[in-house]
Amino acid sequence: MFWLIIIILFLLVALTLILFHREDLSHLDHEDYTVREAGPSAENRHVLELIKDMGNAGKGLRGKARLQAMRKYMDSMSDSLELQSQILPSENPNGEWVIAPGADPRRRILYIHGGAWAAGSPRSHRSITDRLSHIANAAVFAVDYRLMPEHRFMDGVRDCRKAYTWLIENGPDGPAEATFMLVAGDSAGGSHTLGLLAWIRESGLRQADGAVAFSPSTDLTMTAPSNRNNIATDPMLGPMFGGLSKVPRPVIWWATLAAFRVSPTSPVASPLRGSLANLPPTLIQVSDSEMLVDNARRYAAKAKAEGSPVRLHTWRGMVHVWQIFSPLLPEAEEAFADIESFIREIESRKNDSEVA
């Protein structure tokens, strides 16, 4: 019996090494990045209270009931917003158009919301999609991709791919080729955004003119230092996922494979693990105090090494995806001003190349 246990353990270790073989990316942690000097504004205190309320939404509940409470709370975040944008529902693909007054329908943004692939919706992220439509003078399509656990992870991926393919040739007014395309997303949606760029490249489709990712999840292997080092300083993700720091990583990998039906080392689930060459200009915004900051840093460093124009802008002491707290939070408005400048820059370069 003893030797049988030893053999089983040996085979399990060998299978783990084979299934979850991964490149050691710790060398990417040596890059230096500038962090904005200004600390959190006074309004950040209110944001922290809102995050506590979000955490309490499912208090005392378990399983599906807790998840539903979280989904309901996230959707309610848009209830108090005074939006000037027009909201138009779409059924095929599923989602909604968010269109600021005067926005050009041939200028389009695909927005992919976050929520750990299990929560969130176009409605929950209207504070972001509304601002993007205004600053980009574009029609924003927020895709309502299928969520786990009711659906498979790859179902959501396919929904995002379908939405992008459709958006190239279709706007809110019907069939019409897009003159400008941007892909944006936050957290889990940021992962889908970055993974989508690679899929577009491999598929030979018209590539996006640019991309924006807010605090993206880039690597489900959770090997980046901040995944554990920043648990105490991340008021949103820390309470939700901090307990994973006590779980051996191979156990997390097996659990991820079981839940996602995709290996955590797959570039589809972990864009950092794939080729980052020949990607469009990409802006990543992240906070230095959140758990995912090193995931973003590693992605930016690898993309730079492989020749893609990816830039990382880091704020000090902000909560995960603080942009969703616009217009309450001044730092959120700063982030959108940063995005507006980024869009102007990529458009200027695009126009120069067309003239040349």
Results as ranks from 00 to 15, higher is better:
Gln323Gly: 05
Arg106Ile: 10
Lys64Gln: 15
Asn227Cys: 13
Leu67Pro: 08
Val319Asn: 06
Leu17Cys: 11
Pro309Thr: 04
Pro216Lys: 05
Trp166Ala: 10
Asp24Lys: 12
Ile109Val: 10
Gly242Ala: 01
Arg66Gln: 13
Asp288Thr: 09
Leu276Thr: 06
Leu197Ala: 02
Met77Asp: 09
Leu83Asn: 02
Met318Lys: 02
Thr265Ile: 07
Gln86Arg: 15
Pro149Leu: 08
Ala103Leu: 15
Asn92Gly: 08
Ile112Lys: 03
Gly60Leu: 10
Glu347Leu: 08
Ala38Asn: 11
Val262Met: 12
Ser266Leu: 05
Trp315Leu: 02
Glu345Phe: 02
Asp173Pro: 09
Val293Ile: 14
Phe336Arg: 03
Tyr145Asp: 09
Ala277Ile: 05
Val319Gln: 07
Ser353Lys: 14
Glu202Asp: 15
Ala116Ile: 06
Ser191Ile: 11
Thr193Pro: 06
Phe342Gln: 00
Ser341Leu: 00
Val247Cys: 05
Asp75Leu: 05
Ala337Tyr: 08
Ala337Ser: 14
Glu290Cys: 00
Glu96Lys: 06
Arg146His: 11
Asp173Thr: 15
Ala57Arg: 03
Arg146Pro: 08
Arg66Val: 02
Ile6Asn: 10
Pro248Trp: 12
Leu279His: 01
Leu110Asp: 01
Pro216Val: 08
Phe342Arg: 00
Pro281Gly: 01
Glu340Lys: 06
Pro239Ile: 06
Ala303Phe: 07
Ala208Ile: 00
Met236Arg: 10
Met181Phe: 11
Leu312Ser: 02
Gly102Tyr: 07
Ala208Leu: 05
Ile284Met: 04
Ile343Asn: 00
Leu279Gln: 02
Met74Lys: 14
Arg261Gln: 12
Leu25Gly: 04
Leu205His: 12
Ala42Gly: 07
Arg158Glu: 13
Pro89Asn: 02
Asp219Gln: 06
Val47Met: 02
Gly210Ser: 04
Ala259Gln: 13
Tyr111Ile: 10
Pro235Asp: 05
Asp219Pro: 03
Tyr164Lys: 08
Ser217Leu: 14
Ala184Gln: 01
Ala176Phe: 04
Ser308Glu: 01
Ala119Pro: 00
Asp130Met: 02
Val319Leu: 05
Asn351His: 13
Ala337Ile: 09
Lys72Leu: 12
Arg344His: 08
Val157Gly: 03
Glu202Tyr: 05
His134Thr: 06
Ala224Val: 11
Asp294Leu: 06
Arg161Leu: 08
Ser90Phe: 02
His27Asp: 11
Ala301His: 03
Leu48Met: 10
His134Arg: 12
Tyr73His: 14
